[in-house]
Amino acid sequence: MAVVDGTERELTRSRIRIGDRLFRFWAWSMAALLLGLMLLLIYELLDGAWLALSTFGLEFLTERSWNPVSARYGAWPAIYGTVVSSLLALAVAGPPALLAAIFLAEICPRWLEPSVSFLIELLASIPSVVYGLWGLQVLVPAMRDPIQQWLYTHLGNLPAFGCQPLGIGMMSAVAILAIMVLPFAISVSRDVLRAVPNDQREAMLALGATRWETIWRAVVPFARSGIIGGLLLALGRAVGETMAVTMLIGNRPDVSSCLFSPAYTLSSQIANEFAESVSPLHVSSLMGLGLALFAITLLLNGGARLLVWRVDRGNRRRR
């Protein structure tokens, strides 16, 4: 046993190690809190939606009417509106997002790339209500007059453009959603493309491929599942987006094939009616919409994360 400075120094465990245990326990319980929170979230949603689910059963999901007066509530119009608006938004935003991501990851000169990426990321940090305000006052008038009016006059015999243009409605909601998911889809795809190992590019270049052929035939296919994952994440964003859509979609529980007509999404219906609903069944039905929304985003995000992770892990194995 060594004696330094007159004090005995022992090698046995001292009581100070309790500090380690406590600290570890604190960190662990904070992590566990997250698990608890998720379970609580699911419980509260189920609990809130229980009345509606037990009253209507699974028909709740397919019922087309939403009528507080006759106390019949069906989620179908909102589910339809959610699916249509977010898929269309992704169809509009997806291709330019992929191209812009290719530009940032593969083509943009190094000195320029950080500033462009930064600007695009700023686009993602503008609050949803601000997009809503801009949509209401700038986008909707522009939509109504030149764009929708033109479509109505020239393509009015198609069901998608065959009703009176109002400005507010599905089409404007799609437009604002497309703008809002754009930066997100760009930055995820850009990161995935950047992770493609350089030997893939070189292999294609050495075969005598042009720049675009190298990107399109080697880089993009390699990143394929990651890009799809990124687009699914963007779709999840669009599905959950609330404020801007609530302000632009017109808020009517209708299922219409016309893009100009007002509609609802799950989130906008909750946002719009929750505060003013009085009957317990109405509140519970809105909770049911929330549960459906949660389930859809869970599915999309779960699938997307798996795809993005797979690309990451695949790369790690290659290295």
């Binding site: 030997d199 070189e202 294609m204």
Partner: peptide, 15 residues
């Protein structure tokens, strides 16, 4: 590059 082909250090087939 179509007339001068290249094989790399690490096999790099397109996966």
């Amino acid at each position: 590059r179509r007339r001068v082909g290249m094989v790399f250090q690490k096999p790099n087939p397109f996966p």
